[in-house]
């Protein structure tokens, strides 16, 4: 069996198991390629019936406008239900304060926890992959979270065969990761095979960017460029889409899915290493954020 067909079958199996076991599933949808692929798989899993759960987007307020437009187009095209949790609203309510570096990525955790609590979601689909980062290599497919959304590696249940234990106590929920066994290359190959549309910023385009910490960041009112940084036009694309303040672009001429696949296969940097400032903070940055309830 072709490996894409096999991991597709596995992901669909995981999604159907979670929906079979949970009362209130929800799918985290950012418009990023992993969440787009996850949505595609979820729609296939229940076709021809409509998707039996809503989407949730934690909007930092620093999202790329192109990505938000894409999100809304997808939601309208497939008649989906979308909840949006706004980081700005939590800041306005005084639950959160802006960080000095302008990054709102760490603030998402709070909004996610709050939305899960408010809607009593008990299975939250995330697009995280084990190949992304060391702490994720040990993540379960069904990852148990306590009432505070926290992840305790020692409390995680062993997962054997294809048996996922979805039982949880009151207030606890599961993060479910259907793409656990996918790599970045698999995601792109699947996008190609299934002709999945992605936001345009994944492909090479001209953009006003400036250099910070060795990354190309998009100029914008979130806090850049500073006086000592200067914006210039470059041909770039994004390998991940997130908060504009910490998601860097790479210089690239890849304008098609095929060209992106060739570029990734040849690339010598992981996608997080290349473009995510939040993982550069320390060797255990991801592990620490997961303990606090990050995806």
């Amino acid at each position: 069996m072709n490996h894409l067909t096999e991991i597709e079958s596995e992901a669909v199996h995981i999604i159907r198991e979670a929906v079979g076991e949970a009362e209130r599933p929800v799918l985290l949808f950012s418009g990023g390629k992993d969440s787009v692929v996850m949505l595609h798989l979820a729609r296939k899993a229940f076709a021809p019936a409509p998707l039996p759960f809503p989407l949730l987007h934690v909007d930092t307020g620093h999202n790329f406008p192109e990505v938000l437009a894409y999100r809304d187009r997808v939601v309208a095209a497939y008649g989906l239900r979308l909840h949006v949790a706004l980081v700005q609203e939590s800041i306005d309510r005084g639950e959160l304060t802006e960080r000095p570096d302008g990054s709102r990525n760490p603030l998402q955790t709070h909004c996610l926890r709050r939305a899960v609590e408010l809607h009593r979601f008990d299975a939250v689909f995330g697009g995280a992959r084990r190949d992304e980062e060391k702490a994720r290599a040990k993540e379960r497919v069904f990852s148990l979270r306590d009432e505070f959304g926290g992840w305790d590696p020692r409390r995680q249940r062993p997962e054997l065969w294809q048996l996922y234990n979805g039982r949880h106590g009151p207030g606890e929920h599961f993060r479910v990761f259907p793409l656990s066994n996918w790599t970045e290359l698999d995601v792109w190959q699947y996008v190609e095979r299934e002709h999945i549309e992605l936001p345009g910023i994944y492909f090479a385009h001209d953009r006003e960017v400036f250099r910070r910490d060795g990354m190309w960041l998009t100029a914008g009112d979130w806090g850049g460029p500073r006086a000592d940084e200067h914006a210039e036009k470059r041909t770039v694309r994004y390998r991940t889409v997130g908060d504009m303040a910490c998601t860097g672009a790479v210089e690239s001429s890849a304008m098609t899915v095929r060209a992106v696949i060739t570029e990734i296969a040849a690339s010598r940097l992981t996608e997080r290493g290349a473009t995510r400032a939040d993982d550069r903070l320390s060797d255990t940055a991801m592990e620490d954020r997961k303990r606090e309830g990050y995806f």
């Binding site: 069996m1 072709n2 490996h3 894409l4 096999e6 991991i7 290359l185 190959q189 095979r193 696949i261 060739t262 296969a265 040849a266």
Partner: peptide
């Protein structure tokens, strides 16, 4: 060769 990795591998 990077090229070779871009083809869909036969199996898992």
């Amino acid at each position: 060769p990077a090229e070779a990795l871009t083809t869909t591998a036969a199996s898992l």
